[in-house]
Structures are given as C-alpha cells and as structure tokens.
C-alpha cells in the first residue's frame, strides 16, 4: 500500500471524501439536454457550447435532444437527475419563460435551476415579400387598417407571436395569425404567399435576402448586432417614441438547484471561452449572440424577461395565475 492510498483510506475513515469527490468532478461523460430538435439554431449553438465545455473539462459532453411537449419533458428530465453536475440543461425562452408563465408546470425555473450564462439571442423583425405593395412600415400600417392581413409567426405564444400581438395592440391592428411552426418555415410561407406579412428574426435576412423586405425591427432600443444584419432599418422605439415593442430571446446553460458550488464554479470557468471573439466568430451568420456570464447576471436577465412578458401575456389572457 503506497502513501496516497494510505492517506485516502485515512480520509475515508474520517468521512472527508465527500469534498474530495466533488473536487474530482468531472470524471465521467456529461449529458447536455436540449429541448429542441437536432439541426435548428438553438441546437447548433448548444452543440458548439457542448464542444467547448468538453474541451475545457476534458470529458465528453453529449447532447441529447428532447423536443416537444412544451419543453416540459426535457426540463423535467434534468430535474429528475441528481444535482451532481453530470446533467446540464440548455435553457431557452420557452422552457424558462413562456411555458412557466402560461401554464401550470411541475417546475419553477429560477427556483429549481441555477442559470450560468446566456449566449444565443434573437430580435424580431417584420418582413414582407419583396414584391409586396408595402414598401415602408407606414404603408404597411395603412394597408393593415384597410384589410385584415395574414400574419405568419412560428408558434402561438412564442416571442414572434408576442411581438405581433404587441404590434397589433400598439397600432390598433387585427391580423389572421397563422402559426407555421419554425421561423424558416414562416419566411418560406411568406415567400410562397401563404401570409402577407411575417415576424422573422433580424438575422433571418441572411438566408432570404432578395426574397423578403424588412419593414421595421420589433424592438425598443437598438442592439449592437442590428447594424450587421439590417443596416439602416429603424426599431419601433426609434420610429415611434412612446410605442412599445420589446423582444426577449435568450438561451444558455443551467444546472439543477443544489449542484455544489465547486461544480458551478468549474462550469463557469469552463464556459468563459464562449464569450471570446474566437468562439463568437464561429457562430452561424443567421444566429444572433448576446453574451451574459455569471449566475447573478443571468438570473437578472431572466427576471427582466419575466417582467417584460408577464403584462403582455396577461393582456392576452394567457398569463397563468400561480
């Protein structure tokens, strides 16, 4: 028996190995639960995150996609696993914001999870076909008052839909809202003439450039990345001071509450790379990225989203009373 084993045995006898075990984390592959299907923007950024974490931690980080079911099965599968840092969660607006605000969920995001960072982001913009009679946002408003236009959004209750609702409320409009499931499908539906106008993301322009025309960015304040995607396009807040148009789309990493601080610290250190220019430059063009790092900062970011969307959903009669 060598000295190390002797010390280990001694520590074990003293009941001190608990701390030592955490210090050794991670010693086996980590599971990274993504509540979206494989292949979408959220999945891709999650996979890039998983790879960066794997490089930093020295163990495989395996992405598992559990789409559907209002993101609840995926979220619950993280909470059903032990809080040992081996099951990570890719939080997103539906799982941490929209779903808990609109229906009874078996979890409370900020109570049951510790959010570590936010990376992927998005802002919504209003698009028409490039051959649309509406050349400007003002012409569109006129047209929408004359006739009930078909409005394409991805899913009812999702941020693009909420942007459309806010637009309708602020400008006194009414739409036929058609949910076409994903943002690309919504824009393809716009191009194919299924709807007259659609809410896409600011970065969507990179895929559909000549076929669609942006009218306005559905946000109050200008964000740094708008100019890269939609140069010269105004935000609602800039064009119509006093009108409200907020988008809150963020996503990142969370672990189950009760995960030891030592593991949280290691994960935070391992995720630092995701805020560097080297990492951000690899993100696909059609994805916006807005880096927030740290438990407190990310929690505050999520709280700001709850504050933004609660009154909006309440106005729609969708807010779930707890």
């Amino acid at each position: 028996m060598n000295v190390i084993k002797l010390i280990a045995a001694g520590l074990a006898a003293l009941g001190l190995t608990g701390g030592a075990a955490f210090a050794e984390w991670p010693e086996k592959p980590i599971t990274y639960i993504v509540s979206f299907g494989a292949g979408g923007n959220a999945d891709i950024v999650a996979r890039m995150n998983a790879e960066a974490l794997s490089n930093a931690l020295g163990v495989p980080v395996n992405v598992i996609n559990k789409p559907g079911g209002a993101h609840i099965p995926a979220t619950m599968s993280v909470l059903e696993a032990p809080a040992d840092g081996y099951t990570l969660f890719n939080w997103s607006p539906p799982s941490f914001m929209i779903v808990p605000l609109t229906r009874k969920t078996p979890y409370e995001p900020l109570k049951d999870f510790i959010p570590l960072y936010a990376g992927i982001s998005a802002s919504n913009a209003l698009y028409v076909r490039s051959d649309s009679p509406y050349k400007t946002f003002e012409e569109f408003i006129e047209g929408a008052k004359e006739k009930k236009l078909g409005m394409g959004v991805n899913n009812l209750g999702a941020p693009p839909n909420l942007s459309a609702v806010q637009l309708a409320n602020e400008f006194g409009l009414e739409f036929k809202t058609v949910a076409l499931k994903t943002v690309p499908a919504t824009l393809a539906g716009l191009i194919g003439g299924q709807v007259d106008v659609a809410v896409g993301q600011v970065a969507s322009i990179h895929a559909y450039g000549d076929e669609i025309r942006p009218l306005i960015i559905l946000d109050n304040q200008r964000k740094d990345y708008f100019e890269k995607d939609l140069p010269g396009i105004r935000t609602v807040g800039e064009a119509f001071p006093g009108k409200n148009a907020g988008t809150w789309v963020h996503g990142g990493l969370a672990v189950k509450s009760g995960t030891p601080q030592a593991i949280v610290d290691k994960l935070l250190a391992a995720s630092e790379f995701m805020g560097t220019q080297e990492f951000i430059s690899q993100i696909p063009k059609a994805v916006s990225y807005d880096w927030t790092h740290g438990v407190e900062q990310t929690t505050a970011l999520i709280q700001s989203g709850i504050d933004l969307y609660s009154p909006l959903l309440d106005g729609l009669g969708l807010l779930h009373s707890r």
Partner: peptide
C-alpha cells in the same frame, strides 16, 4: 444543422 455549423446559410441565395 450541419450546413449551418459550416457557416453556410441554406436559403434562396
């Protein structure tokens, strides 16, 4: 998704 990872943007262009 694999195309997006490659930095390509599938679409009409």
């Amino acid at each position: 998704g694999a195309l997006l990872i490659q930095g390509l943007t599938p679409g009409p262009k």
